[in-house]
C-alpha cells in the first residue's frame, strides 16, 4: 500500500492532481481511496487531500505514517510534514527547500516554472508532479501508466515523462 498527502493552496490544482493519481491507480488495477476538502476551504485557503493506493476502507493517513507528500508550496509542505514517515518522500513544486530537512527524501523541482517555460502552460505542472510521483514508487508500473495515458495530448505525456525522469535523477 502507498499512502500520502497532496497539499497546496486553494485554486492550485491539488484536487485535480489527486483525481489524476487516483484514476491512474484504478487504471493500473489498484484500489484507491482519497479524501478532499471543498467549499469554504477552497477560496485560497490551505487545501490537503489524503490518498491510499492498494488497500484501505478509509483515506485518512495517520501522523508519521505517510509514504509521500506532494506539495505545491513550501509552506504547505512544512504544515503537512508531520504526516510523513521516516524514509518517506517529499515532492515539492519549488526549488526553495529552505528549512526543510529530515530523515526523508526530497524531490524539489520547479514544476510550475518548468511547465510554463518548457511546455508553454503552467497548468501542466500537475502532469510533471504526477510523473515525479510515478517515478518514486517501484510499486507503480510507469510503462503501464504511460500506456494508459497514451490517448492524452502529447504535450501532457511529455510533461509526465519529464516528471518521471526528474524523480529518478534526483
Amino acid at each position: 500500500m502507498i499512502k500520502g498527502v497532496i497539499c497546496g493552496k486553494g485554486g492550485q490544482g491539488v484536487i485535480t492532481l489527486n483525481a489524476m493519481i487516483g484514476t491512474l491507480a484504478s487504471g493500473l488495477g489498484l484500489s484507491a481511496i482519497s479524501a478532499e476538502t471543498h467549499g469554504m476551504a477552497m477560496r485560497g485557503g490551505s487545501v490537503a487531500t489524503y490518498i491510499k493506493i492498494g488497500e484501505g476502507q478509509s483515506a485518512s493517513v495517520a501522523l508519521g505514517d505517510g509514504d509521500f507528500i506532494i506539495s505545491l508550496t513550501r509552506d504547505e509542505a512544512l504544515r503537512n510534514l508531520p504526516y510523513l514517515r521516516r524514509g518517506g518522500v517529499l515532492i515539492l513544486d519549488t526549488e526553495d527547500k529552505t528549512a526543510i530537512e529530515g530523515d526523508f527524501r526530497i524531490i524539489s523541482l520547479d514544476a510550475t516554472g518548468t511547465a510554463n517555460e518548457k511546455f508553454g502552460n503552467k497548468i501542466l505542472a500537475g502532469q510533471i508532479l504526477l510523473g515525479a510521483f510515478l517515478g518514486c514508487f517501484r510499486g507503480l508500473d510507469v510503462d503501464k501508466a504511460l500506456e494508459i495515458l497514451k490517448n492524452a495530448p502529447k504535450i501532457n505525456i511529455d510533461a509526465v515523462k519529464y516528471g518521471v525522469e526528474n524523480a529518478q535523477t534526483v
Binding site: K9, R43, G44, G45, G64, L78, L81, G102
Partner: peptide, 18 residues
C-alpha cells in the same frame, strides 16, 4: 508520542474573497 518533525509549522492560509 508522535512528535512532529521539529519544524515550526506555518499557520494555515485562511480563505479570502478572490
Amino acid at each position: 508520542e508522535k512528535t512532529d518533525s521539529g519544524f515550526g509549522s506555518p499557520a494555515p492560509l485562511k480563505p479570502r474573497l478572490c
